[in-house]
Measured scan of single mutants.
Amino acid sequence: LVRYRTISKIPQITLNFVDLKGDPFLASPTSDREIIAPKIKERTHNVTEKVTQVLSLGADVLPEYKLQAPRIHRWTILHYSPFKAVWDWLILLLVIYTAVFTPYSAAFLLKETEEGPPATECGYACQPLAVVDLIVDIMFIVDILINFRTTYVNANEEVVSHPGRIAVHYFKGWFLIDMVAAIPFDLLIFGSGSEELIGLLKTARLLRLVRVARKLDRYSEYGAAVLFLLMCTFALIAHWLACIWYAIGNMEQPHMDSRIGWLHNLGDQIGKPYNSSGLGGPSIKDKYVTALYFTFSSLTSVGFGNVSPNTNSEKIFSICVMLIGSLMYASIFGNVSAIIQRLYSGTARYHTQMLRVREFIRFHQIPNPLRQRLEEYFQHAWSYTNGIDMNAVLKGFPECLQADICLHLNRSLLQHCKPFRGATKGCLRALAMKFKTTHAPPGDTLVHAGDLLTALYFISRGSIEILRGDVVVAILGKNDIFGEPLNLYARPGKSNGDVRALTYCDLHKIHR
């Protein structure tokens, strides 16, 4: 019993810090008490220290592992850092350059016999395009090294910054494609005289377009951006097909006994025919423009016929181009109408809503002055909100995010209106959640004399007048207030005048 009563005193000691020596009952000389009392004092002292730490809000209350900052290894790049964003855009520009100039170089340097010394005699450094290609190869190699040090988000939505895990993730992902696209074939085969082989191998750079397509997928929600990307894709495919079309004609031209190829026909049409040795002929500019003209006309199913396939190889390629053109029509131009419709969806919704308003007016036989006010209010409210119901949009977000959005939407009023000066951010967040926005066209009466005042109004834009009878008592403008002081009276009061809008007004109100 003594032991039980001794232990039962522990909660009292913990909360009230009572010393055991003052209790005459606990001072009985028993061996059990002498053993338990020192333990009680020690526990009391420890609990006292913990309570003191909690009340003082000291940093040592938290466990040590929670006080440590997340460790980022040296030379690790955050995937959302500004440097990584700028670097990704730079790589994107280099990939676009590669997609345009690599097929052009591979096709127009394929057994090209233009006048001038061969590239091997001039030297590697004197070729501007080769120098640019070398810079692109170096940048792609540097990009691989950067990807080995860039964080990523795993399946659990955690940012991984450990170098080993980053390397394994990159090896399992895009490393092989990036490595093949970054191989400097110019340096590996330079001086061997195989410019045709170098041009063909350099087309491996186009593998990076797969990554670019995935990154550009984030802009699919913007109709104008999608339309622009589709047109660029169409032009890029036409450019690639033009390079292939020229390569076919250029390879067949020296081996044909009869002059029936499209390059021969082009030379005869523009007065620059090929001679018996295969030299001469149109310039590279004429060849490229004509090839691009043929691919565009074939892809769009126009086909004027002034550039036509004559050999079997050219006919087979033309059939493939027609098939590609039909697929592009289905996948690209078939979506253009939907994209344009999405661009004008706001206008369509406006006309639909206006039609419903006019049908309501016609069905209920609203008189002319009231009908005009109804239409003007709808037009003004639509121009202010673009038909978007803010309350319906915010309803799907958590309250903390709703408060931040409301604070942002009402920031101008909260910053410049005098009653809100000096208020804490928590108070402003709470008030912003209570605001209701209303609009009024010129001549609209917001409050009639004798109406119950259940709200306090803040003028965000425009001006109003307060009338008693036919006498203008006051004219209020931006950041002015009218209405009933909230919670100042037990019952809502009545208006002693009319409140009429002089201009288009936007008002925020808080109800009782």
Rank of each mutant, 00 (worst) to 15 (best):
Tyr65Cys: 14
Leu67His: 04
Val86Ala: 07
Leu90Ser: 04
Val95Gln: 01
Val95Asp: 01
Thr98Trp: 01
Pro103Cys: 01
Ser105Phe: 13
Ala107Val: 04
Tyr124Ile: 11
Tyr124Met: 04
Val131Phe: 07
Ile135Tyr: 01
Asp137Cys: 02
Met139Ser: 07
Phe140Tyr: 01
Phe140Pro: 01
Val142His: 01
Ile146Trp: 01
Ala155His: 13
Val159Leu: 05
Tyr170Thr: 01
Tyr170Asn: 01
Phe175Trp: 04
Phe190Ser: 13
Ser192Val: 07
Glu195Tyr: 10
Gly199Ile: 06
Leu200Asn: 03
Leu201Arg: 01
Leu206Gly: 04
Val210His: 11
Val210Met: 09
Arg211Cys: 01
Tyr219Met: 10
Gly223Leu: 04
Ala224Ser: 05
Leu229Thr: 05
Thr233Ala: 14
Trp240Gln: 01
Leu241Asp: 01
Ile248Trp: 01
Gly249Phe: 03
Asn250Gln: 13
Pro254Met: 14
Pro254Glu: 15
Met256Gln: 15
Gly261Ser: 04
Leu263Asp: 01
His264Gly: 01
Asn265Lys: 14
Lys272His: 01
Pro273Arg: 01
Tyr274Glu: 01
Ser276Lys: 15
Ser277Thr: 08
Leu279Asp: 11
Gly281Lys: 01
Gly281Leu: 01
Ile284Glu: 04
Lys285Asn: 03
Asp286Cys: 01
Thr290His: 05
Leu292Lys: 01
Phe294Ile: 01
Phe294Leu: 01
Ser301Met: 05
Gly303Pro: 01
Ile332Phe: 05
Phe333Val: 04
Ile340Gly: 02
Leu343Cys: 09
Leu343Gln: 01
Leu343Arg: 14
Leu343Asp: 12
His351Phe: 05
Val357Trp: 01
Arg358Ser: 10
Glu359Thr: 03
Ile361Cys: 06
His364Pro: 02
Leu370Met: 04
Tyr377Asn: 13
Ala381Met: 08
Trp382Gln: 05
Asn386Phe: 06
Ala392Tyr: 07
Leu401Glu: 01
Phe420Ile: 03
Arg421Lys: 12
Thr424Ser: 11
Cys427Glu: 04
Leu428Tyr: 04
Lys436Phe: 07
Thr437Ala: 11
Thr437Ser: 08
Pro442Phe: 01
Thr445Arg: 04
Leu446Ile: 14
Val447Trp: 04
Val447Ala: 02
